[in-house]
């Protein structure tokens, strides 16, 4: 945290969607910084605000969404960029890999064509040069018979191969930051581990800063340097992978780890967190986790705990540590 120039610096970000009857505050005061060459996993359940936080960095929200706070990426203030400037940012500085490559890729163009187009949008190169780079990228992401595969349309490829193509496209303009939104959730376990290893290798090779959004703590443990746990629009705990996995501090993180089926050998029931995450349009007062928390006390229901430093690099938002 003492690093002079973080690659990504998010300060007090709040995102409110204004569609529907009531405004929904999906992200509520998130601060997060990512150093150059660091991989941070945003871990949380659906509706926790992990994807919304990440998408804010590319301003990928529908019109009418209110974004508050400041976000800088590679020294640029993202909140104030014009459409044109955002276009210049997406690709050479920040790029993204989505959960569903089938929806993220254009079905009517070949994969080679789509990668060439990305390169030519940002750099003054000939098509021949762009296509040579596309081929090199396909080799890099270890797609077998890359010459032939570049001529394929998305529907001709399997899910794992498509996700590799998406990664190739994301790396086409040598970005500094890679945003990965549950990139392996739709894949089989055998393919998932291949993609995770690929992302890890490329991250090291390119020195990328990565934000990796996932709901799976096992996946986070496999790729990340640090983990930030989100609950109901806020970061509730942050720390190195070992800290989070071996010594979780927040009762929610403890509950998540305790409910893991891997730990239940020989037990006939799982330990569970009672209840369900809160409705974002109808948030409980005080700590959002307090209605489900086994150790909640009176002040938890009235006061929102701040994220305070805890241990070497960790931060926790729980009254027990305030």
């Amino acid at each position: 945290m003492t690093d002079p120039a973080p690659m990504i610096d998010i300060r007090n970000l709040s995102v409110t969607f204004n569609r529907g009857r009531k405004p929904v505050k999906a992200v509520n005061g998130v601060s997060l910084s990512v150093r150059p060459g660091e991989v941070v996993a945003l871990l949380g359940e659906s509706g926790s605000g992990k994807s919304v936080t990440m998408r804010s960095l590319l301003r990928l929200h529908p019109a009418g969404t209110t974004i508050e706070g400041t976000m800088t990426v590679a020294g640029r203030d993202v909140t104030g960029l014009s459409k044109r400037e955002l276009g210049d940012l997406r690709g050479p500085i920040v790029s993204m890999v989505f959960q569903e490559p089938r929806l993220a890729l254009d079905p009517v163009y070949t994969l080679g064509r789509q990668i060439e187009e990305t390169i030519m949008r940002h750099e003054k190169v000939s098509r021949a040069e762009a296509s040579a780079r596309a081929l090199a990228l396909f080799r890099k992401v270890r797609i077998p018979s890359p010459e032939r595969r570049l001529k394929n349309y998305p529907h001709e490829m399997s899910g794992g191969m498509l996700q590799r193509s998406m990664i190739a496209m994301a790396l086409a303009c040598n970005p500094k930051v890679l945003l990965a939104d549950e990139p392996t959730t739709a894949l089989d376990a055998t393919v998932q581990i291949q993609i995770l290893l690929l992302i890890r290798d490329l991250q090291r090779e390119y020195g990328l800063s990565v934000i990796f959004v996932t709901h799976d703590i096992g996946v986070a443990a496999e790729v990340a340097d640090r983990i930030a746990v989100m609950y109901a629009g806020r970061i509730v705990e942050e720390g190195t992978v070992s800290e989070i996995i071996h010594a979780p501090k927040h009762p929610y993180t403890q509950g998540l780890l305790g409910a893991r089926v891997e730990l239940a050998h020989g037990r006939d029931r799982l330990i569970t967190i009672p209840g369900a995450p809160p409705d974002l349009t109808n948030m409980p007062s005080g700590c959002a986790f307090s209605p489900r928390c086994p150790v909640a006390s009176e002040p938890c229901h009235t006061r929102v705990p701040e994220l305070v430093s805890q241990g070497e690099a960790g931060r926790v938002a729980c009254i027990q540590y305030a």
């Binding site: 581990i193 290893l197 799976d216 443990a221």
Partner: peptide, 13 residues
């Protein structure tokens, strides 16, 4: 292929 849950023992291959 299952994630190991141990950052010290990550899969290499």
């Amino acid at each position: 292929s299952m994630p190991s849950m141990d950052p010290q023992a990550r899969a290499l291959e």
